[in-house]
Every structure is written in C-alpha cells, then in structure tokens.
C-alpha cells in the first residue's frame, strides 16, 4: 500500500473518531415520534479488498492493487420506531493486478451494490445490514480488452455515526463491510457521507 492511501485512510479515520466524540442528533423517527422521514446518505471514501484476491495461474508474476475508491448512495425510510428500511447503491473498487511479462496483462474488478437495507440506531450509532445483489464489473486487458458484467448475491454491514450540521443536514463517518458472496469478494470501506433529511411528514 502506498503512502498516499495510508494518509487518506488515517484522515478519514480521524474524521470518523471525531464524529464519535460529538453527540449526534440527526435522527428522525426515534421511538415515540409520530413523524416519518426519508433520509439520504451520499458520500465516498476508500475501499480495501480484505480477502485473498484472484490472480493468474501459479508461477506467473503478479502485482496487486487492493485499495481504491468507493461511494455510497442510500435512502432510508425512518418510521416512528427504531427499525428503518431503505435501498442502497454506489460503487466500490475491489482490486486490480498486472500479470505476466511479454505480453503482460491487467485485470481489474469493481462492484455496484443494489441492496435492501435495514437499520437501527443503538448506542448512538446507526447500524445497517443489507442484502441483495452486486453488479460485478471485470475488465481484462490482454491481447485485446474485455469488459464484462455479472450479478452476484451479496450483503453488507455498516456502522455509521452522524454529526448534525443543521436541522436537516449532517456529516457521517461510516465503516462498511461489503461482501459479494457468490464470487467471494469482500471489501472494507471507510467513508465520509453527507446525511440529508429529504422529506418529513
């Protein structure tokens, strides 16, 4: 891992920890409320591919990149109790590798999640669990290029802390585990997100 992603990771982590130190209050639909709201989470950060990546056959030289960018778009319905329901998408870079010599090639893999998400606020932290599909995008550059997509079953789990900026706006730090189970792909994400109460009724 190069120094730059490390510095970015550290900065994001500090932001997250700072967020935890400030009591957050941008929570519609806490128990006892009679209001409903729609809350959007939009943000981005880093994705680190956590499990063993795929590669060329044994014996072929290979060089991996396992840290990349990721983004999240999520809309949650906050009813008048603890449990919330929503949809999540976004994008995450999983990993890429260069392989072989004369000719050499390159493979990269990324994913777009499409998940149904449930969440609860416990201990002042929003906990998210999602299930659905990942749209995997694989790109090969070796004696021509191939750009192919496929679906994979998957899930995600995340913990997020929101620091309120105004009545309807907040800044959140989120740690998220993405898992496309069918292809055994998993990434840990650290993101900063803008939390926006879109609608309240």
């Amino acid at each position: 891992m190069s120094a730059r992603p490390l510095r970015i990771s550290a900065a994001v982590l500090v932001c997250c920890l700072a967020g935890f130190a400030v009591p957050g209050d941008l929570r519609a639909g806490t128990p006892g409320d009679s209001t409903y709201s729609l809350v959007a989470y939009i943000g981005g950060g880093l994705a680190r591919y956590i499990v063993a990546p795929g590669g060329p056959p044994p014996g072929v030289p290979v060089e991996y990149t396992r840290t990349g960018l990721s983004g999240t778009v999520r809309v949650m319905w906050h009813p008048d109790h603890l449990l919330r329901l929503g949809l999540e998408s976004g994008w995450a870079s999983f990993y890429s590798y260069k392989f072989g010599t004369q000719p050499s090639g390159e493979v990269s893999l990324s994913a777009v999640p499409l998940l149904v998400v449930w969440s609860m606020n416990v201990l002042g932290v929003d906990w998210f669990v999602g299930s659905g599909y990942y749209r995997l995008n694989s790109n090969l550059d070796f004696k021509g290029t191939v750009d192919v997509q496929t679906w994979s079953l998957g899930w995600m789990a995340a913990a997020s802390y929101t620091h309120p900026l105004s009545e309807s706006l907040g800044l959140a730090g989120e740690v998220k585990w993405m898992n496309a189970t069918e292809h055994a792909d998993a990434a840990l994400n650290i993101q900063v997100q803008l939390v926006w109460k879109l609608l309240e009724w």
Binding site: G55, Y97, F99, V148, Q149, T150
Partner: peptide
C-alpha cells in the same frame, strides 16, 4: 479465483489460457 467474471464466450482462447 481470477477476477474475471461473466460469459465465457466473451473471452478469447488465449485470454482464458493466460
């Protein structure tokens, strides 16, 4: 595990062998 996904007929024989 290779990082390649999708329909096998999208790839050439050389690409699959590599």
């Amino acid at each position: 595990k290779s990082g390649l996904v999708g329909p096998i007929e999208e790839y050439t024989y050389d690409q699959l062998q590599a």
